[in-house]
Design a protein around this nucleic acid. Structure first.
Lengths: 122, 122
DNA sequence: CAGGATCCGGCTCGATACTG
DNA sequence: CAGTATCGAGCCGGATCCTG
């Protein structure tokens, strides 16, 4: 059975739905975009993804690691150093996610105008 | 000032962040994908996006309408008929969102394997 | 049929304090 | 430095009931 017939995110019972829930997420998008140029330390990641709390960044990275999208590299040093890196699978995810971030930036002017006119109508 | 310098989703204060939060969402992704072939009634949309509740679908459509991504067509009939349609802006959003859904379907096997191996390690 | 209104459990997320 | 632990506010989202 060809794979393109096997999975369908539109079906609530399809396992691919659980994956979509994770990747169609603003924190996931920003973390994957931030990691795409190369491996990065936790603190630098936190600075790049402006506004993310340590807790949420940790949780996001754990989930991405669990899904095989990110690899964790730990060094036995003092102070500790931990780096995160996209896996080959993670890099394939960057391909659809980067355009999503670009869309938000490229069309925010139109979106803001639409919101203003919508709110004025109410 | 060129637009590519004006907005940056990585900055928490950038307005584009609010747009990313909306579009990087599983329900948004599925609704936009469902609407891309053409205009659709509320009930058919609910059937296509399997598992979505009427409440959440209504809220998602309202938010997308507010952001100028979806248009609402109401007919004065009994029983009422309401159709939803992607705007031209909405169609440009389908371009990055459709690949995201495809990614979830195409790589779920690898993701499931990664989860299994991650969970076995703990 | 397409919703609006209401209730509410659960999860997301931020803030703070603490640890190896 | 890179977390973990805890608390609590708030949003997400499901269930139920009602209406034009």
């Amino acid at each position: 059975m060809p794979q393109h017939l096997a999975f369908d995110v539109m079906k609530s019972t399809c396992p691919s739905r659980t994956s979509l829930a994770r990747i169609a997420n603003k924190w996931t998008a920003m973390v994957v975009i931030a990691l795409s140029p190369g491996r990065m330390r936790f603190r630098d990641l936190r600075a790049t993804v402006d506004g993310i709390s340590a807790k949420v960044l940790t949780e996001t990275l754990r989930d991405l690691e669990r899904d095989g999208i990110v690899t964790r590299h730990m060094y036995a040093e003092v102070p500790p150093r931990v780096e995160y890196e996209l896996t080959p699978l993670g890099h394939t995810l960057h391909t659809p996610l980067r355009p999503l971030g670009h869309w938000a930036e490229a069309h925010i002017t139109e979106v803001l105008a639409a919101r203003e006119s919508y709110d004025a109508r109410q």
